[in-house]
Simulated assay, not measured.
Amino acid sequence: MESRPDLSRVLEPPSDDDSSLEPSPSIEWSDDVLEIVARLGEGAGGAVHAVRDARTGKCYARKSIVTRGSPLKYVLRELSIISTLEHSNITGFYGAYMSPSSSEVKVLMELCEGHSLEAAGAEIRRRQGRVGEKVAGRIAEGVLQGLTYLHSKHFIHRDIKPSNILLTRSGVVKLCDFGVSGKLVKSVAVTFMGTTCYMAPERILGCNYGIRADVWSTGLSILELVQNEFPYPRDLPAFELMLHISQSAPPKLEDDPMLPKPWSDAMKDFIRLSLTMDATARPTPRDLLLHPWIEGIQKRKINMARWISEVWGWDMIHKESSDSP
């Protein structure tokens, strides 16, 4: 498995005031002022690196988008979306520039040291560990909060999956990668974009869809996280997998006899509702924030900073400020 850079060793300790990352409106970005710290992986359209501003010492995630391979209209659409978004569960946007030497658009985003939910899940599996219900609930809540905010702005994400759910050093959930996001018209979208295996049945079938399609992808991502495996057969060809998802009964959260205690009935019901085949009967993100499982999670003290530190084996710093995500 590809090793993940230990960003806790090269970045400044987090500040309680996120405004410390805000660049001056007059700052101009270029390759000359940004030093590559680590390669983080691939995003929609290009590579993602952790970079440090040589002038301020601040670090960001920089996504490079090759304009030859990505129609410029999609690049401009992503920039137009992320530049208008500001929410604690959406990755922050700090600017963009064109690299003359490579014909790439480079986008500077908030750096999430905890990597993606996909990477965290892979590390947990490697260590033969499991994700507990409280942590899963906090992650689900963060995704739903981000989606509810997007919906309030008349946007749908359309590519919710573990690799697009990021975690900060303090365990805060952040949605990223808006390259396939679109504007909702009367709460309905009609284009076929996103990652097939996490798509809701209505999208696979080519029907109109709305924000509830993101709810399906959320439920599938949480189910995969807690079960340590993708809920559908990974070995099926793409077309057969699409047929399987759209025609078979949705997966359920089932108890594992190897675990010390069963999943709560409230959590099972949350997954069941998220994976409702009929989109019109599936709750919206706002509806699910009122679900008893999420309301119960919101009342509990969950040290997400400690959890993400344990996932990556970091030394705990500022324990006293990490009690809440």
Rank of each mutant, 00 (worst) to 15 (best):
M267I: 05
V188P: 03
L79I: 15
A238E: 14
D159M: 09
E22A: 05
A266Q: 10
A54S: 14
K134G: 01
E295C: 10
I27H: 07
E2S: 11
V185P: 09
K268W: 00
C59S: 15
P201V: 10
T280H: 11
V172K: 13
K301G: 04
F93I: 06
A140H: 01
S170A: 04
V143Y: 04
I204F: 05
S80L: 04
V180C: 10
S30W: 05
S101E: 15
K134V: 06
V10M: 10
L175K: 02
G206W: 07
G132S: 12
I82M: 10
R169Q: 10
C112G: 00
G43F: 10
E123H: 07
V135D: 10
S246V: 04
T148N: 13
E295K: 14
H157D: 01
M98E: 14
G41M: 04
E202D: 00
G41N: 07
V226C: 07
H115C: 08
K186A: 13
E295P: 00
S217C: 05
M199R: 13
V107C: 02
G69I: 11
G194P: 00
A189G: 04
K63N: 07
N89C: 13
V226F: 05
S8W: 05
Y209L: 05
K58F: 11
I81V: 15
L34F: 06
S187T: 08
P250V: 02
M277S: 14
S103W: 07
A122K: 14
T280D: 15
S248G: 01
H49D: 15
D53C: 12
M304P: 01
K106C: 15
E42M: 11
E104P: 01
R300E: 14
P250W: 00
V188M: 12
F178M: 01
L243R: 14
A279P: 01
E229Q: 14
D31Y: 09
D159G: 04
L108R: 03
G171M: 01
A279S: 15
M267T: 00
S64T: 10
R138D: 08
E123Y: 03
E28V: 14
R158Y: 05
G41E: 09
G296W: 01
G313A: 07
T84Q: 13
G69M: 14
S187Y: 10
S152C: 03
A189E: 05
S102C: 09
L253M: 05
D17H: 08
V10E: 06
D315E: 15
A44G: 13
V33T: 12
W314D: 12
A61Y: 08
G206L: 03
H157T: 02
G114A: 08
W293F: 15
A120M: 13
A38V: 01
W307L: 08
V311I: 13
D256C: 00
V75M: 07
L21I: 02
S88Y: 04
E254A: 09
R77M: 06
M277Q: 12
E224W: 00
I165Y: 04
L241D: 10
E133S: 09
K73M: 05
Y97H: 09
H87E: 11
I124Q: 05
I222T: 06
S163F: 02
V190G: 06
G182C: 10
V172C: 06
L117Q: 05
P285M: 01
Y232W: 15
Q247C: 12
L21Q: 10
P251D: 03
A200Q: 08
T280A: 13
R212C: 12
Y209Q: 02
A119K: 12
I294T: 01
